[in-house]
Amino acid sequence: MSESVAAAGASVPAARPERPSRVPDFVLCAGLALAGLVVLVDALQLSNNRTGTDPLGPRPVPLLVGSLLIILAVFLAVSVARGHVGEQEAGEDVDLHHKSDLKTVLLLVGVFAANIVLIDILGWVISGGLLFYGCAIVLGSRHFIRDLVIAAALALGTFYGFAIGLGVALPAGILQGIL
């Protein structure tokens, strides 16, 4: 999809990205195998009391899934070693000509995590507003005042619209009684 993305987005001539490193793909294989191992170990800890009403018991299916994950990890590793590297997903706003900008992703994860910690303490209006504000800035918006106004409007709007209007469970937090 890389070429068409270039054609649609900018007028630069399509250029093939450099041949990607295979190391991340092997890391993925290792991760799959590890996940399979976790499923297997967990399954072996179950007591497999097979009964008349349940001749199979709770164990065989996780054993199957765990083994399958490990086998597939091996298959994938072989496939990657032969040069079949996964095709990254393209999209309307995706530019695959640059390396993944992991810094942005990590910052977003940080903002997201802050919301997890703060949501029950500060309430959705403050915590959710900060979530939007933080994400917008991390994603490159530089209109600090406008962003803040939009964040506040969204947070208040969703709280009044959904929590109070429609009865969706959103916490009021420290603003309890004020809102």
């Binding site: 706003d93 977003l108 997201f112 959710g128 939007f132 800035i137 918006s141 969703t158 969706v168």
Partner: peptide
């Protein structure tokens, strides 16, 4: 785009919490 994707994360969090 910053608003679009910030908005997606905002509404996704709201929905999941709800």
């Amino acid at each position: 785009r910053p608003y679009l994707y910030a908005g997606i994360l905002f509404f996704a969090s709201m929905g999941a919490y709800a």
